[in-house]
Design a protein around this nucleic acid. Sequence first.
DNA 1: GTCTATAGCCAGATAGAC
DNA 2: GTCTATCTGGCTATAGAC
Lengths: 199, 199
Amino acid sequence: MEQSAEGKILAAAKRVFVEKGLDGARMQEIADEAGMSKASLHYYYRSKQHLFDGIYMQVFSDVIPRIFEIINSDLSLFDIIRRFFEMHIEFLKQDPSTPMFVLRDINRVPHLLERILKERNVDIYAAVNAKIADAVERGDIKFIRGEELILNMVSLSIFQFAGAPIFKTIGRISDEDFDKLIEERKKTLAEFVISAIKR
Amino acid sequence: MEQSAEGKILAAAKRVFVEKGLDGARMQEIADEAGMSKASLHYYYRSKQHLFDGIYMQVFSDVIPRIFEIINSDLSLFDIIRRFFEMHIEFLKQDPSTPMFVLRDINRVPHLLERILKERNVDIYAAVNAKIADAVERGDIKFIRGEELILNMVSLSIFQFAGAPIFKTIGRISDEDFDKLIEERKKTLAEFVISAIKR
DNA sequence: GTCTATAGCCAGATAGAC
DNA sequence: GTCTATCTGGCTATAGAC
């Protein structure tokens, strides 16, 4: 992020909102992290809600294209699956709190979700369903709806981060082992999904 | 829940906390739902945090045994997988907000998670790993760690509820169609996982 | 543009009558 | 045990000096 006041505010607000959510975040904490006073925050952004909306848009608009881009590529279905887990898990490793940030307050900003989707009106499912139809035709895979395949893939890569505290505690898994496991799962999850649909 | 004051409070608090989380919930709203004054809430429960902890324990202690029970049964590995999705999804259908409730404030109550797991010191993974070893021995399945198999299954059944708002919006899926899809997925998810590990 | 000081509000918790 | 009234603290947002 830039050195400008706006840049510093956005960076600080992102950190605090991602960690604590809309209700839990404090304008004072954001001000402290940005190295300025609360009043300055309000000078640049009308209200806490406006600031939150800005961050939410930024984070969400950043995540969606990553997924679409892979799915809309020229690769074979199996390679799309491999590339998806490779890239999605790598992204989530860098920013493991984003899934919970997006989910926690999702019902507080329904208009934002609609707006993002209208702006990028890619029919994500058409591409996948075409590739599935091809693969079924050739006898490579069993039929599955594109919507469900993508839901399953996203579930498998996101939940391991969103539910990590529980998973670590129940399995008595150290942070170090968890990181190792996640790294392996870039490959094992891809093969898991490919086996699941292979004929 | 019973007719007693405590019972009414717990029922009301559960509804409000599950919907809004610790920060978003208001004691006044809980009092209104329970049909009494805020003061009465504080008479029975020292503070908002104490009340929340009680609810959290209750919800979480209710979910964990359901999963353990199925996994520790005498069924074959494939039947465990089928039964898991049947029961887990049916439970989540009744209470679709519980996953988000548990996840949203998980890092606010780490001690509770530890306590629940100490109380029920079942080694959930030992049972699954034994069954996996058997099935691998017989050549029925490829090897997978029990921890990962369970994580994958839980991911697939929970995330479809936690992420439902996004999934519905992106896929332009109506509530009605969503319910139908979820019902089908009791079976299709089981077969998805079975195919994934089958040799 | 950035600050200090404060207004104004709201929520959790308590006092004390009944 | 349950209520009304109130205290207390903390938070968003603004006023106004510099």
